[in-house]
Design a protein around this nucleic acid. Sequence first.
DNA 1: TATGCGCACTAATGCGGTTAAGTACGAGGG
DNA 2: CCCTCGTACTTAACCGCATTAGTGCGCATA
Lengths: 370, 370
Amino acid sequence: MTAPGEAARRKPARRPTIKDIARRAGVSESAVSFALNDRPGVSQETRARVRRVAEELGWQANSAARALSGERAGALGLVLARPAQTLGVESFFLQLVSGIQEVLSARQIALLFQVVEDLGTECALYRRWWAERRVDGVLVVDPRTEDPRPELLAALGLPAVVVGGPATPGPDPSEPAAGPAAAPAHPLLSTVWADDAKAMARVLDHLYGLGHRRIVHIAGLPGLAHTARRIRSLRTEADRRGLDHRQVHSVTTDYSDAEGAEATRRLLDAERPPTAIVYDNDVMAVAGASVAAERGIPVPGALSIVAWDDSALCRVTHPRLTALVRDTPGFGRLAAQELLAVLDGGPLRTVQGELPHLEARESTASPSPR
Amino acid sequence: MTAPGEAARRKPARRPTIKDIARRAGVSESAVSFALNDRPGVSQETRARVRRVAEELGWQANSAARALSGERAGALGLVLARPAQTLGVESFFLQLVSGIQEVLSARQIALLFQVVEDLGTECALYRRWWAERRVDGVLVVDPRTEDPRPELLAALGLPAVVVGGPATPGPDPSEPAAGPAAAPAHPLLSTVWADDAKAMARVLDHLYGLGHRRIVHIAGLPGLAHTARRIRSLRTEADRRGLDHRQVHSVTTDYSDAEGAEATRRLLDAERPPTAIVYDNDVMAVAGASVAAERGIPVPGALSIVAWDDSALCRVTHPRLTALVRDTPGFGRLAAQELLAVLDGGPLRTVQGELPHLEARESTASPSPR
DNA sequence: TATGCGCACTAATGCGGTTAAGTACGAGGG
DNA sequence: CCCTCGTACTTAACCGCATTAGTGCGCATA
């Protein structure tokens, strides 16, 4: 034993290879490879012996070597394109990632996770990962209405699944003609998605049922596909109930607390302010509730509030916020499974996640008559 | 062009290798390798020509091949051990990761990010990454007072940097004897850390200066090293000012909004409740503010609140919360740089991040006389 | 008894890089 | 004029694994 600090750190600590196993088991390297990969060509006894030796030595395949010969990187990628300062607060992504990894780690597949500033950088990163063969496939999040990524990924031949899609290609999607279950799949990539339209309908059912007729939806970024879907759904639901687009409509923001608060102020300053507001994320909902408190507007007495996505935030405010709850880790699991299916040569599919449910809390009630 | 969907997806899309470059440039593969890696052995003209060809072909080194021969995986790892349901809300990690990647992506180094349930799984993952040669090093977050990870990593010879350390090895650290700048480094790994002791002193300066004499610190998980440091610092600062440990003390929680609220309730129910509470994260601070609101206790009139770590949360409450602001992405950059330095054979070091500053907002004021 | 066949295994090759060990050539020195 | 030396390359070996093409052997078949 030398000085522990330096010695421990510099120790080469050679890792066992199949050659070591071969020597110890008294067979050739290829026999070891066959044995460990469940390929025919070795007897049951030899297979068992090799396995035992591998176990003893604590052998794990060198991922680089396996990738080089096996043509599989053993890793998937996920890029989050967000300006640094809008990061955080939302619990959505860590939960999604946690669900994804539940599926991947069982298969010994790693996840490359990267946060970048914008879509352009994201695309460049896909190209690089592809060229470097870093990943076998990627999960595409935050699909947009005009999204360059599916085309790029299809052109590269990099397997991918769009999470939160379908991103409707083009800005002019026709009104859903048939049942809403038959969603238009993105033609290039597999997709897992939640039915925002139905979820929005549920929210409207709840608020309309309580008697609300002036309902505003403070949406997130206008470029995102799910924002578009929610806005469209709100309009459809309003029409169905014969509500005017001045009574029921959406405004878009950048998801930040600042814009959420600002939009709320503007709405409350209007001549006939809404009696209910639906916020596209928890942060804005809390910010909105705070604006109401600031102005002495009682919630839910004079204003009902719904948050799209639940989190601790919605439970720490006073009153607690009614929220659309979805199983985000479950959604991540679904996405990961679908990507693995694509990697295994499965067909392009559009898979629908669980429908979110509305958790009614104290921030929604019947509007006071006026 | 065939049917775009299937065809695009299945396209093999062979990526260029150095062999292709060699052929096009009319030199051997090793000359190409020399040229591209800034090694001597090729003339300036050849180097330029090879570079140009590589550029034209859009060549990027196959990371697996490079890892296999170069002995470098070109990737670092970061494991977050958290039960799935406590994930999220906190913006800390995504910001940290974003800072880390700013440094790594410039060097074409990838980050393997994994969320696991507990420390045991985290250790197992380190072993696996090490055995698979997946990563060249790891960033260890959430250092604990009794932490098995540094020892494990040192034993494996896997380079690492402790982020948020130094984790004082053993439960019995002597009181800082010399200047607080000379922090005890963890003997096995490099460390980047923020001086929680000084930060806590600043918080106490602020509150004591306002006239507070009954101050409680609602801390996070007791096992974490920084929790211990903050608690110790609070005690030191109290002693220095001759304050009783019944007046000024810490209680620990699991960081959740629920425990934060619960602890707050208990404190406010006491005979002589504190006039100021310092919360170890933003979520608990907001939860605590909500409890005060629920009971009609005016903030800051009857209770001052300080949040450790700023975020949108602290700005959406009413009043906005005084918070300790730190540059988390900057901290991530620092950590990444330090790990790269270790990989380059640098010495074990203990690097200190920027001291957080106290952003005084409306949630702190002089206590009302009673 | 020669022939064919399946089984269990070994030898050889390749993946795409890096790198140590040559080699060819021109310049400079004795 | 020969020898050395440095430069600019090329050849070959290697990293650890997967895979393909043998190889030897026992056994059923003709």
